[in-house]
Structure formats: structure tokens, C-alpha cells
């Protein structure tokens, strides 16, 4: 575990030094939100829960918890999830890193 953490710190410093995109190299999800209506999550690992009020998405860094009203999955595929509706909260509980 310690070894993995050291490697990550070393990689983080390298990424900062060369100004590389961290989301690509560290396998992090990328979230793009337009107002409170659209949210695109790239690089996800699957859908944990979906209701009209809640969407839970698993990623490499942990879980993304979205709450709101009339939430719809406009599109879902291997790389990205597109959520639409009146989004009120985006939480990252139990986030690793």
C-alpha cells in the first residue's frame, strides 16, 4: 500500500513538472457540468444505482454520488455517462487519493 502511494506521489510530481493532463495519466474521472442541468462523467467504471433522484457512478478514484430531480441518463457507454435533470448535489464520498 505504502509502495503504491509513493509511486503515486512520484508520478504526481512528474505530471506537475511536465504539466501533463492528470486525469489521463492517473486514471481519474473527468466531470464536466453545464449549470445544474447536464453532467458528463468520463472514465467511469459502472453504474451503481440509478433512480429519478439519485445516480451513483463508480470510478477508479471512488464513488460519485449525484442527487437531484428528474434525473435521466441521456447516454451511457463504456467511457462516459451523461446525466440530465435538475442536479442539486454532486458528492465524492469515500474518495481515494
Amino acid at each position: 500500500m505504502e509502495k503504491g502511494k509513493d509511486r503515486k506521489n512520484w508520478l504526481g510530481r512528474l505530471i506537475n513538472f511536465f504539466e501533463l493532463p492528470p486525469d489521463v495519466l492517473l486514471d481519474l474521472p473527468r466531470l464536466v457540468m453545464s449549470g445544474n442541468e447536464k453532467l458528463v462523467i468520463e472514465n467511469h467504471r459502472g453504474l451503481l444505482e440509478y433512480t429519478n433522484e439519485t445516480v451513483r457512478v463508480r470510478t477508479a478514484g471512488g464513488e460519485i454520488f449525484i442527487t437531484g430531480e428528474d434525473l435521466n441518463l441521456v447516454s451511457i457507454e463504456q467511457e462516459e455517462v451523461w446525466v440530465e435533470g435538475r442536479i442539486s448535489r454532486v458528492e465524492l464520498p469515500k474518495w481515494r487519493g
Binding site: G46, Y50, N72, V74, S75, I76, E77, Q78
Partner: peptide, 13 residues
């Protein structure tokens, strides 16, 4: 389905 590369859209609960 998405792990097999299938695309789904307009998903509604």
C-alpha cells in the same frame, strides 16, 4: 451491457 461495448441512450427509471 456497457462493458461489452453496447451503447444505451435515453435511460429512464
Amino acid at each position: 451491457a456497457i462493458q461489452q461495448g453496447i451503447k444505451l441512450w435515453e435511460v429512464r427509471r
